[in-house]
Amino acid sequence: MLSLSSEQRGPYTVVKVAGNLDLITRDQFDQFMTKARRHNSQVIIDMSAVTFMDTGCLAVIVGHWKKLLTGSGSLILAGPQYRPAKALWITGLAYRLPLYDSVEEAVASAEAITPPAGTPTLTPPGGTPTLERP
């Protein structure tokens, strides 16, 4: 019901989540995220293929986000779809967690924040997280 994989994209470890995030898959997801977090403090969760997410798994995401922040790392959510991941919007956490439409945008935003040494920045850093409801 849940498929998890990870790959390296620049400075980021991208965790690809496909399927249901619920009580049944929660521990599996939590353990996978713990491994990813120990491997790299810059993590993107690709949520574009999540078919359902409950508040328990959202709590798992928030837990890892806070732990990464404490260690000067970051956690970005990429591509969550409104209907299956609606818990993000109902709880208001969509407005607190770093959220981008796609992995590409998340990676690009990070590059804008931390350009290679010596690169002049002509555009304001940061990028704008997408917060609008569809």
Partner: peptide, 12 residues
């Protein structure tokens, strides 16, 4: 409770 501790289900 803090969100990472769960317990949001009933409220949602």
């Amino acid at each position: 409770r803090p969100a990472e501790q769960g317990g949001m289900g009933l409220e949602v």
